[in-house]
């Protein structure tokens, strides 16, 4: 078990490091000349040189990378080009906001999705299974901004039940915050519902068809006991990993939603940074999202290892 833990953690670190390289390469190397990219094709060559020197982007690539990553590791994420201020505080606030939105979505979608998957699996082949599957399929593929706009139209403009903007007035209480976050969270719920329900259903079907379920039924146990004690326990194991990784997506995939609802989360920050070619902010934001995802994967693996006796307890004596 410990070995498993260490190995996973080690792999995560490697992934994180590679991610940093990729992000850096993507942001710094692809454009070629940062200064040129920022000032545009018509700017004066000298101005470009000055800017490059000021930003330190005329140094050798490896030096730039080493500099950036070593500072990042201790929390110095550089200064935003757009705001001329340290990136870190913006990122932290953004992260917190995104986390709130993600939490609302998470609390709605996980029970719904799992329940949906269980109901579908227990009624395999019957109409409700088909309906749930198709609803899930459809909801999961419609882009967030499309469903977001439809929702805004219905609940925000026509019925006026929910506020269009996700940003609540400063100093609002918990309830008001949730009130504002409901509408933006629904597209997220729609997208993830299908995915979670499908995974749960697949896990359930596999467990229902397995030999050990057959043994339990033939032992004469009542159906409810069989499902509760034998099927669910094994079916939900893979679902838990999936859910854990999806929560990470919730945080990082909010670019569209936060833009649509004018919400200052990390997704919105990334978008703004992208529009303004604010590379330090962009890099830091993307790497943070990646780090969160990697951590979530790691936690999911750990959780899985804890719950799966094969890994927890080890093999034959």
């Amino acid at each position: 078990m410990i070995g498993f833990l260490l190995k996973r953690a080690g792999l995560s670190l490697v992934t994180l490091w590679l991610l940093s390289v990729l992000v850096f390469a993507g942001a710094q190397l692809l454009p070629g000349n940062i200064g040129r990219a920022m000032l545009g094709p018509f700017a004066d060559e000298r101005a470009v040189e000055v800017l490059n020197h000021e930003m330190g982007t005329d140094r050798p690539v490896l030096v730039q990378y080493a500099d950036w990553i070593s500072r990042f590791a201790v929390g110095d994420m550089g200064n935003s080009y757009a705001y001329r201020a340290p990136v870190a505080p913006f990122l932290l606030t953004g992260l917190l906001n995104s986390a709130k939105l993600a939490l609302v979505a998470f609390l709605l979608v996980v029970p719904l999705g799992i329940l949906g998957g269980i109901v579908a699996a227990l009624n395999l082949g019957r109409p409700i299974d088909r309906v749930l599957t198709i609803v899930g399929l459809s909801a999961t593929i419609v882009p967030e901004f499309v469903s977001g706009i439809v929702l805004i139209l219905i609940f925000g403009v026509w019925l006026q039940w929910l506020p269009i903007s996700a940003t609540w007035p400063v100093g609002s209480g918990f309830a008001t915050q949730v009130y504002h976050l409901l509408l933006p969270s629904i597209p997220l719920v729609l997208i993830l519902f299908g995915y979670i329900a499908r995974m749960t259903r697949a896990g359930m079907v596999e467990a229902l068809d397995s030999d050990y379920t057959r043994t339990a039924i033939l032992k004469g146990l009542p159906r409810r006991t069989v499902i509760w004690r034998h099927v669910l326990r094994n079916a939900l194991l893979p679902t838990i990993s999936v859910v854990a990784t999806q929560t990470a997506y919730l945080i990082g995939g909010l670019v569209i939603i936060e833009t649509l609802f004018h919400y200052q989360g990390i997704g919105g920050l990334i978008f703004t940074a992208a529009s303004k070619k604010d590379f330090p902010m962009l890099q830091a934001g993307v790497l943070t999202v990646g780090a969160i995802f990697t951590l979530a994967s790691l936690s999911a693996d750990l959780l899985y290892g804890l719950l799966n006796p094969r890994i927890r307890v080890g093999g034959r004596e």
């Binding site: 992000v23 993507g26 962009l282 990646g290």
Partner: peptide, 19 residues
Amino acid sequence: DALLALPTVIVALLALVAL
């Protein structure tokens, strides 16, 4: 794994900003 650690939109965004 590293690439998949980011939501597609963000990876695409990064690349498109650069290119």
